[in-house]
């Protein structure tokens, strides 16, 4: 069975149906891109999988490693190995990045019955991860996302991803708000985490990101369901002709 198996998923936001029968299957180690125009349900897919309040699954199934994903609380899903990189990372004044990372890692360890990490050891671990992402030592000392530039916010998301080492990373419009240089840094960081075992769901409006993070599979999301699936060529088709012809073919 695939790591993530979604079948006929329906979800509503404020009572409004957004996902209407979405099927998607992501195997271990695979990188899938979901592309779609505005309003197609991309962020709803990300939030429904991550378990955000207000994103209500009404029908269908989603399993993660064979477990009923939709029955799990958001924090349980994260501890089970799902990581959501936010399109708009949230500012948390008064909580340092290091404190967030330490609390998150220890929450995962506690759920596995493991002891808390040694603080100094963890600091070294995070610094090493940060260095590979071109992140200075000072960023984890600052309050989470407070006063961060768009690029810094996305790099901090990737640092969290690298530190938490999830089995499935959901990247929600990670390219939004990034210039080309920042995009390259972020994409390099993500590519460094492709190890043949970790799966990724890359959600994007533009093909641009997929030049840097080349997916194994590409899906077109429109009107709340996947209307076409293919290889990387499908992304280039969107780049060349836009979503119009694909939607018209429906």
């Amino acid at each position: 069975m695939a790591l993530l198996e979604i079948s006929d998923l329906h979800a509503t936001v404020d009572g409004k149906p957004i996902l209407v029968g979405l099927d998607l299957s992501i195997g271990a180690g695979e990188v899938h891109a979901v592309m779609g125009p505005n309003g197609s349900g991309k962020s709803t897919l990300a939030y429904t999988l991550a378990g955000r309040d207000g994103y209500e699954p009404t029908a269908g199934k989603a399993t993660f490693d064979g477990r009923d994903l939709l029955a799990m609380a958001a924090d349980e899903r994260a501890r089970a190995g799902i990581f959501l990189a936010f399109q708009y990372p949230v500012e948390i004044p008064g909580v340092t990045g290091m404190n967030l990372l330490k609390t998150a890692v220890n929450a995962v360890r506690a759920s596995r019955g493991e002891a808390e990490l040694d603080a100094m050891e963890f600091l070294r671990f995070v610094r090493a991860k940060a260095a590979t992402l071109g992140i200075g030592d000072d960023m984890p000392k600052r309050a989470v996302n407070v006063g961060f530039s768009g690029g810094e916010k996305k790099r901090f998301e990737v640092l969290q991803l690298a530190t938490l080492e999830p089995r499935l990373a959901i990247l929600d419009e990670t390219d939004s708000g990034l210039d080309v240089d920042a995009l390259r840094v972020v994409a390099d960081g993500i590519n460094a985490l492709r190890d043949g075992k970790r799966s990724m769901l890359v959600i994007t409006h533009y093909q641009r990101l997929l030049d840097y993070i080349v997916p194994d599979h590409v899906h077109i999301l429109a009107g709340g369901r996947i209307i076409r699936s293919g290889g990387p060529d499908l992304a280039r088709e969107v780049e060349a002709s836009g979503y119009g012809p694909l939607l018209a073919a429906e």
Binding site: A50, G51, R52, D53, A73, A74, D75, A78, R79, F83, L84, F86, P89, V90, I92, P93, G94, V95, N99, L100, T103, A104, A107, V108, S111, A143, Q160, L164
Partner: peptide, 20 residues
């Protein structure tokens, strides 16, 4: 929710935010 999406249980997230 941001903290939950990092695996931090709600009760702990609330404690962290109150302390902050």
């Amino acid at each position: 929710f941001y903290l939950a999406a990092r695996g931090i249980p709600e009760a702990e997230a609330r404690r962290l935010l109150v302390a902050a």
